[in-house]
């Protein structure tokens, strides 16, 4: 009983975070922030489950917006999960690393977000459930200035919102 309440609280805080305009949804710790090491078990209908187990983000090569095989595998899981849970809508955030000019990175982030959006829609997700936003290089997750960080910052994050689960 107590355990279940905790899970709901976690899901709730995630949902609130997802409403935050400054969101990268889940903050600098990424999905691991709440469920590091897999110690947290989420209800499979929860946003926490989506972030933790399905995988809420995909990564891109330098200056690219095409989806790698690895990204497609994650997006397939996202699509499956979302198709079974029509109560949720999503916001896809496109991000770039710091190695680029501000305006170009906004445009690049828009491309990356659209790339994910288009794939999910091609998998059958309704257009109406997917919105996109670009943050360009404004919201890095990792802050070092080398490829180890940049590769994590070149991302598109699927932020799930629109309900607290069944």
């Amino acid at each position: 009983m107590i355990y279940k309440k905790l899970v709901i609280a976690a899901a709730l805080s995630l949902t609130l975070a997802a409403c935050d305009n400054n969101a990268d949804g889940y903050g600098a710790g990424g999905a691991g922030g709440l469920g590091a090491g897999g110690s947290q078990v989420y209800d499979e209908n929860s946003i926490g489950y989506f972030n933790q187990t399905v995988g809420d983000r995909v990564w891109f090569a330098v200056d690219q917006s095409n989806l790698s095989q690895e990204a497609i595998a994650i997006l397939d899981k996202q699509a499956d999960w979302l198709l079974q849970r029509p109560q949720y809508s999503i916001l896809v955030e496109g991000h770039a690393d710091e190695q680029g000019t501000r305006e170009y990175n906004l445009a690049l982030g828009a491309r990356r977000a659209a790339s994910v959006q288009n794939y999910l829609v091609s998998r059958g997700l309704s257009d109406a459930r997917v919105k996109t936003i670009t943050y360009g290089k404004e919201r890095p997750i990792e802050i070092c200035s080398d490829e180890a960080c940049w590769s994590k910052n070149r991302r598109a994050v699927t932020v799930v919102a629109g309900g607290f689960g069944a």
Partner: peptide, 9 residues
């Protein structure tokens, strides 16, 4: 200005 639509700016 720029406008981004469906990923195209």
């Amino acid at each position: 200005m720029s406008l981004a639509e469906n990923g195209n700016t």
